[in-house]
């Protein structure tokens, strides 16, 4: 692991350069364009650089009540969904990792089902059921639909985390007098913690950016940040409103990732995916 990979001198790493160019083109370039638009007041064709920078559209966007209510709602939804998902999925993941029971494998793979089919079709079918249950346009309706989306991350990654905890560590704790519950709390959970934190983070960020479910189940009463952004982009002639909201939407993921790097450290994400 400690070895450093080096490219022999005199050889040009063409695949690496090609990969970097493609990545720049499809990720960094659009981000720069959107970021630039957010701080632009005047940018007319055929200029490559905006004629006038400014924060006018930030003031206009941030003074809107619907933006703040959407942001609050998105944060509430993400928090509730992540907590519920953790409460449901972590014990289930532990059971999948440590116990054998009839139908275990089928049940385990069923969590892939939500991601194995075209999502929109699934959402429409669920929406029909929610309509009968009066859940359309409600906070808890959106919570439920977004909960489904987190199941994969919150089951599969913690299962890998629990499975990678050395059974001997748990046995050593039993040996010195810890009950099974105490072993889980004091040994298993801290050992699996960083990877589980990665799963929780992915869940939170994924829920925050989830659009299809929030729009199909939540509309018209529930408008999350991404839904509001799409509305702005579709209905507003001014590009900057959408751009400002896009930049605003990056903030939670940036904070989350910075937080993640501090508490999780390198390798945990990879371990979470069985790496």
């Amino acid at each position: 692991m400690a070895e450093t990979l080096t490219i022999p001198r005199g050889r040009i790493d063409f695949p690496g350069i090609g990969f970097a160019i493609v990545l720049s083109a499809v990720i960094i370039f659009p981000l720069i364009v959107v970021g630039t638009w957010a701080f632009t007041e005047v940018w007319r064709y055929p200029n490559v650089v905006p004629q006038q920078f400014g924060l006018r559209f930030w003031n206009q966007t941030l003074s809107r009540a619907d933006v703040w209510s959407a942001l609050t709602l998105s944060l509430q939804l993400s928090t509730v969904v992540t907590l519920l998902s953790a409460a449901i999925c972590l014990p289930a993941a532990y059971a999948f990792a440590r116990m054998t029971f009839p139908g275990r494998n089928v049940l385990f793979f069923s969590f892939l089902a939500g991601h194995a089919f075209p999502k929109f079709g699934l959402l429409v079918a669920i929406a029909a059921i929610f309509l009968q249950l009066n859940l359309i346009g409600t906070f808890w309706g959106v919570v439920l639909i977004q909960l489904v989306g987190t199941l994969l991350f919150m089951i599969w990654i913690p299962v890998a985390a629990f499975q990678s905890v050395d059974r001997r560590m748990e046995e050593a704790a039993r040996d010195v007098g810890a009950s099974p519950l105490r072993v889980f709390w004091s040994i298993t959970l801290p050992q699996a913690g960083p990877t589980i934190a990665a799963a929780v983070l992915l869940s939170f960020v994924g829920t925050f950016y989830e659009t299809e479910g929030a729009w199909l189940i939540g509309a018209p009463g529930i408008r999350t940040m991404p839904v509001l952004m799409i509305t702005f982009i579709n209905n507003q002639m001014v590009i900057q409103y959408g751009a400002v909201l896009s930049v605003l939407l990056w903030v939670p993921s940036f904070i989350a990732l910075l937080f993640a790097r501090r508490i999780i450290g390198g390798g945990a994400f990879a371990r979470g995916f069985g790496g």
């Binding site: 050395d166 001997r168 560590m169 046995e171 050593a172 040994i187 801290p190 050992q191 913690g193």
Partner: peptide, 12 residues
Amino acid sequence: GMVFQSHALWSH
């Protein structure tokens, strides 16, 4: 009291 081959120390 058991001592395991893999030490089984709690790394946290």
